[in-house]
Design a protein around this nucleic acid. Structure first.
Lengths: 215, 215
DNA sequence: GTGAAACGCGAGCGATCTCTCGTGTTTGCC
DNA sequence: GGCAAACACGAGAGATCGCTCGCGTTTCAC
């Protein structure tokens, strides 16, 4: 019987044992996550088999399950580390900025940071864009999306005071949608062409937002 | 696409059987395709099981395979009929238009047509957006995407004469990307909110393209 | 009416995938 | 050195899915 563990969160509960990891274990976990990233990137989440991940990491299936209770946990952990890394690298990207900053600069800075991170970690895009993702990761996706929307709202609100909240939200949704579409195009190209697409993405956002600005 | 009236004289290839369909068969095929559309819509292509499609259609798995050689063929046939229906309904959407037509009208007309079709046939979006689609449908997807790009190129080229082909192509790619992102938002909302998103999508495209226009 | 072919059924085959289990090895602490 | 726990293995259990096959039913041309 596959016992469905409904653990609410991390290894903190009294019913969950601490499990003293050795250095070897930490190394294996890192190996496995890197392998998973590679496999997820090329085949997507659902099509990625745990055996394939184990093989890519050079270990047996049993070893994989020594460190992860199930396939979903691998993606969760990977997503969590990615999010953490993103926050570490860029602090609060889309951080509240100097009110005097012109729109153009604000957009360019935000786009550059996010694009940069996603180019370095293509798994992030793969994990967050699959409509094939199961329940738990979908929740994380939704959570990330929601915080992203909120951040964009706080970013653009100063530029358009007096605008109804519903309209601001819609604008934010559109911005994030544009960003995702642009990211896909950016990741599909390289070198100078990639740079050109990044510029186009900035153009789209700036030209969309500029007429909305209320001085 | 199954031909209703096969010419007996022109039959060739030993691997292809004539298979004279009866009215009952045509009815079943329609039933099955509708069931498939429903299941694909809710679970996506890969997660949709042929047994589930058969159950949804109220027939046995064996009956399903009486009309389709495999799961992929169902999606292919469904996609083909959808494409045909789209051409029937809108002729050549994005048809070459009066050179005097202002950009704003051209964009609005194209968006309205495509959005309308996609709202009526949400399966189309589901089938064309899954990164979980297998080889054959992916080819159809790519083909559709390529023709879409070409059409957009011919649509916008008159507005920006003298622009290098590579730039025009990039602009077309960005437009289609924006459209896809907008479509997702539109489909996620209903009623007045949906209309508002449609308007925003038009705004994004118009404001993006307007500065590129060379008079 | 009659025969052939299209239609319809559903148990189940074979392949695949997730996850387990029994067993053996390595590590870290005393 | 001794021992418990962490680590490692890989065969395979259990489940699911695509698809088949044998057999019974309906349709239709003659």
């Amino acid at each position: 019987m596959p016992d469905k563990t409904e653990k609410p969160g991390k290894q903190q509960a009294a019913d969950e044992r601490p499990v003293r990891r050795q250095a070897r274990g930490e190394r294996r976990i890192k190996q496995l996550l890197e392998a998973a990233a590679s496999v997820f990137c090329t085949t997507g989440y659902t099509a990625a088999s745990t055996n394939a991940i184990a093989r890519e990491a050079g270990v047996s299936p049993g070893t994989l399950y020594q460190f992860f209770p199930n396939k979903e946990a691998i993606a969760i952990e990977l997503g969590g580390r990615l999010m953490h890394e993103m926050r570490e690298a860029y602090g609060e990207a889309l951080a509240p900025l100097d009110p005097a900053t012109p729109l153009e600069e604000a957009v360019a800075a935000a786009v550059d940071r996010f694009i940069d991170f996603n180019c370095r970690n293509p798994v992030f895009f793969a994990l967050m864009h699959g409509p094939d993702i199961p329940g738990r990761i979908a929740q994380e996706h939704d959570a990330l999306h929601a915080t992203l929307i909120t951040r964009v709202e706080t970013l653009i609100t100063p530029f358009m005071p007096g605008t109804p909240a519903a309209d601001v939200n819609r604008v934010a949704q559109v911005c994030v949608g544009i960003y995702k579409a642009g990211l896909e195009l950016v990741l599909a190209h390289e070198g100078a062409e990639r740079e050109a697409y990044i510029q186009e993405l900035k153009n789209v956002l700036i030209r969309y937002l500029d007429p909305l600005v209320v001085d």
